[in-house]
Design a protein around this nucleic acid. Structure first.
Length: 578
DNA sequence: AGTTTCGGCGCC
DNA sequence: AAAGGGCGCCGAAACT
């Protein structure tokens, strides 16, 4: 009933070798050779988890033939997570490398990552990495299962690799589905914003007009897209600026400011999401970016080409559901502070995050006399490591009411400054400080002593429980610029990364909940998901999102009181969701 | 000529 | 005194 099979592609590139395994990865019987990968999988619906080298290698072929699988285990993705957890991130992560390490053979370096071509059919035609036979995959898989047992929290580590493997399936399915995209609407938006294009290329009319206005304001020809030119022009007008960033330009009193800022905004649309982007990335009414789960160190996804995670708000008008279908746009409310409540166990913040109300308002009622903006700045400052201006004052107020939450991120920052590794809730581990080995700047990266760190953290948090504000405030001391930057990184890492952990499990739960529907997951952006579904299914999808949120909270954080509410909108056009 | 870095801004 | 995390994308500038 719950069968687990390990599958290796045959070296003819079409067939497969496969064998059922037990819970420790030991083969149950002889391997089977099948002439056709797709048929081999399709004919075994009873298989509960497919174990393979790389989802990106196998699954697009199955999807192209209309075959979906319930679960998988991606060996190379797990290798990456396990190596990081073991503090060995620099070592090659390929299955071939892992096998070579086990056999004490020379370890091959990882093949270089190739950038995606616009509209390319993902990894289907990429040059294959070093082939690893079934025998090798079996050895590596069994070893990885053992290594999970050696993790700081084995159960969480197993959940992490399972969730990331689910993410690999979802990414491949989203790549195959594509985001519904109306080229006609996109062109209309571009025309409204930028005006027509001149024959023979060059910038569109509106940009040319704005550039002329900028030049007129300076009394000489200035190219607004060249920072050096703009800085020189302002200098000649008697205004010294350090950069041409918008927030700096906007403080100036000069007639060039308005057209310059407008130019920068539209220029950005033109170069990043203009006509050539449309040409490159949209085909047959779908935008197909190539999602890479775990593409960032914190576990957030990236896309390889197309800039799918940076679609400007105005361009979202082009995301339009098929006729009779809807987009269910679901956005997790204040995800990171809620995650901080769950991982730190701070009683006050957990209480605040245990309700679906606006979290920043609740925080401000308790610690900021109802000043929501101050509360939000303080929370984000604590998570991002802001330590200047009002941030410091606000942080002190936050610390008084939510000491354990602030201590949690402060601890992470200190560990980073000391050159240590930090981990997310499920065990995703920060990379070592760059160049730490050579320079000794931040010391040799080392793993926290297992158990000791958590004990110390728990004790510190307890001590702070009733303390006065600032009584045990962490002071950066003599930390260098580099190590402070490192501290900001690790401070953010534990929160952003744990949020990624949770979001992955949420996605997997949502995928399972919608498996029998016509609905398809078409977009995922850190804390936001879009489901494309027939209009009649929309309400069921909204319900499924709520249920998946509860399930993800329970699976990831256990019996926490923290809730993760979503704002959901059922719309025909993405731009109407907010 | 080809490759890498920088500046700026889009998203979270 | 200064002190803001993670990404991708583009063209220009700075390299080799």
């Amino acid at each position: 009933m719950s069968e687990r099979w390990v599958l290796a592609l045959a070296d003819d590139g079409r067939g497969a070798l496969l064998v059922p395994v037990d819970g420790a990865g030991r083969p149950l019987g002889d391997a089977v050779r099948e002439p056709d990968l797709v048929a081999a999988v399709r004919e075994r619906p009873e298989v509960y988890r497919w174990v393979w080298r790389s989802t990106a290698e196998v699954y697009p072929r199955l999807l192209a033939a209309g075959v979906r699988v319930e679960r998988c285990y991606d060996i190379e993705d797990a290798e990456q997570l396990l190596l990081a957890h073991e503090g060995r991130l620099g070592e090659p992560r390929s299955a071939a490398a892992a096998w070579a390490r086990l056999q004490q053979r020379p370890v091959p370096p990882d093949p270089p990552q190739r950038a995606a071509e616009p509209g390319s059919q993902s990894s289907l035609f990429e040059p294959g990495p070093v082939h690893v036979p079934l025998e090798g995959l079996l050895e590596v898989y069994a070893d990885q299962l053992r290594r999970h047992a050696g993790a700081l929290h084995p159960g969480r580590m197993r959940l992490l690799t399972a969730a990331e493997s689910a993410g690999m399936l979802i990414a491949a399915e989203m790549n195959a589905a594509g985001l519904p995209w109306s080229a006609a609407v996109h062109k209309q938006v571009l025309h409204e914003l930028l005006g027509g294009r001149y024959a023979g290329g060059g910038e569109p009319r509106r940009l040319a007009e704005l550039a002329d206005e900028v030049s007129a304001a300076f009394g000489r020809r200035v190219r607004p897209d060249l920072p050096a030119d703009v800085i020189k022009a302002f200098a000649q007008a008697g205004i010294r600026i350090r950069s041409t960033r918008r927030w700096e330009i906007e403080t100036l009193d000069h007639p060039a400011v308005r057209p310059l800022v407008e130019y920068k905004k539209l220029y950005r649309i033109w170069v990043a999401h203009g006509w050539s982007w449309l040409q490159d990335w949209v085909r047959d009414g779908r935008f197909r970016p190539e999602y890479l789960p775990g593409g960032t160190v914190t576990g957030r996804w990236v896309t390889n080409g197309g800039g799918a995670l940076q679609i400007p708000k105005v361009i979202r008008r082009a995301v339009v559901a098929d006729p009779g279908w809807r987009l269910v746009v679901a956005d997790a409310d204040q995800l990171e502070p809620r995650v901080l409540a769950a991982i730190s166990g701070d009683p006050g913040l957990t209480e605040v995050a245990g309700r679906p109300d606006d979290l920043y308002q609740a925080v401000s009622d308790r610690a900021f006399s109802g000043d929501r903006d101050a509360a939000k700045l303080a929370v984000l400052g604590a998570v991002y490591g802001q330590t200047s201006g009002d941030g410091l004052k606000n942080l002190a107020l936050l610390r008084r009411r939510f000491p354990r939450a602030v201590a949690y991120v402060d601890d992470a920052a200190r560990e980073g400054e000391e050159g240590r590794l930090v981990r997310t809730w499920l065990g995703r581990t920060s990379p070592p400080a760059a160049g730490a080995e050579e320079q000794g700047e931040a010391g040799i990266p080392m793993l926290p002593e297992e158990g000791a760190t958590e004990g110390a953290r728990g004790a510190a948090a307890t001590d702070l429980g009733g303390g006065e504000a600032g009584a045990d405030e962490w002071v950066p001391g003599y930390a260098s610029t580099n190590s402070r930057a490192r501290g900001r990184f690790t401070r953010n890492f534990v929160v952003q990364g744990s949020a990624s952990d949770w979001a992955l499990v949420l996605l997997a739960a949502l995928r399972r909940a919608t498996a029998e529907m016509a609905a398809e997951l078409v977009f995922f952006q850190h804390d936001e998901v879009i489901v494309h579904c027939p209009q009649e299914e929309a309400e069921a999808v909204v319900e499924a999102i709520g249920a998946a949120s509860l399930e993800a909270a329970r699976i990831v954080f256990g019996e926490t009181a923290v809730r993760f509410p979503f704002s959901t909108a059922v719309v025909e056009c993405y731009a109407d969701a907010k």
